[in-house]
Amino acid sequence: MNNIEGKIWLFGDDINTDLMYPQVCYTLKEEEKPFYAMSANRPGWSKMVNHGDIIVAGRNFGTGSSRPAADNIKNLGISCVIAESINGLFLRNSVNSGFLALTVPGIVDAVDEGDLLYIDLKNNTVINKSNNKKINFKPLPQFLMDIIENGGIINILRNKGLLGWPL
């Protein structure tokens, strides 16, 4: 996977799935869904996101439901989530959607909103280019990186011929 560079949006602790993908999204058109991300806690934010931006957040990111929250912020253009800790279901959904979510303890104190962050996936280091702070992190197991690099689980199943026709 290529290294990532992007501008930071900073969020707090316990950012839940229902904020990223409100209930109303389920029956919207695909292209409309991403704009509802964080509409309850940060109205107007989704329209300010540029392709490649990064979310940095506090503890317990993605707590909540099975809903496709990771897809929704990925489809909004977010390239990666970096948090102090990440809910296990959100991490699974990210991996299975081919989206990178990394646990990097200490990240919140090393950044301000709007900083430029560089994620070096070969050396497992994040570098804040705005203040030159550097943090090493424990990479995701290769087993999970392989799913991400293959574009997620649906892609893998499709390539194996395991998916069928519309119901």
């Binding site: 496709p68 279901l89 699974r92 959904n93 689980i153 649906i154 893998i156 998916l163």
Partner: peptide
């Protein structure tokens, strides 16, 4: 058991 996503249950 734990919650899983829909793409995962397809797998």
């Amino acid at each position: 058991g734990r919650g899983l996503g829909t793409p995962e249950i397809m797998n």
